[in-house]
Simulated scan of single mutants.
Amino acid sequence: MQFLHLTEDNDGISHFSEVPIQMAATDFAPPAPSMPVSPSEPATALLYLVLPAGWSGEKHPSPRRQVAFCLAGQLRVEAGDGETREIGPGGIWRMEDTDGAGHTTSVIGPENVQLAIVQL
C-alpha cells in the first residue's frame, strides 16, 4: 500500500512522490489472526468533502497537513512544479504543502468527487 505525497521544497514549490506505507504483522483485533498494520499517527479531525462535477479551484496551499481518501469520482491535482496526477476511488493523497504557493485541483469526469479527509 502507498500514498501520493504532496510536499513543498524550501522555495515553496510543491512536488509529488509515491510513499510506501510501512506495515508490520500485528495482533490488531484479537482473537482474529494478525494482519499488516501501519504505526498510528495522531489526528485532530475527520471531515467529508464533496467537489461537484466540473469544479475547479485556484492555486492554493493545503489548509492543514491532511490525508484525503477518494471515495468516488476523479480529480486532477497539479503540483507547483507542473506535474499532474489523477486520483480516483481508493486513492490516498497526503497533503503537506501548507506554506508555499500550493497546487490546483480540478474534478474530471461527470461524477462528483467524494473525499474523506483526516487532518493531522
Rank of each mutant, 00 (worst) to 15 (best):
Q2F: 11
F3W: 13
H5T: 00
T7E: 08
T7L: 06
T7F: 10
E8F: 02
D9N: 15
N10V: 09
D11K: 13
G12M: 06
H15G: 10
F16C: 04
S17Q: 12
P20C: 05
P20Y: 00
I21R: 08
A25R: 11
D27Y: 03
P30W: 07
P31F: 08
P33T: 09
P33C: 10
S34R: 14
S34M: 09
S34I: 06
M35S: 13
V37E: 03
P39N: 10
E41L: 12
E41M: 14
A43T: 13
T44I: 11
A45F: 04
L51S: 09
P52A: 06
A53D: 05
G54I: 05
S62K: 02
P63D: 09
P63S: 09
R65T: 11
A68L: 07
F69K: 02
F69P: 02
C70G: 02
G73C: 02
Q74T: 13
L75M: 15
R76P: 01
R76H: 00
A79P: 01
E83K: 13
G88Y: 04
G90T: 10
G90D: 10
I92V: 15
W93Q: 03
D97H: 05
T98N: 04
T98G: 05
D99G: 11
A101I: 12
T104F: 03
T105S: 11
V107H: 02
V107F: 01
G109R: 03
G109S: 07
P110K: 09
E111V: 11
E111Q: 15
I117K: 02
L120A: 14
L120R: 06
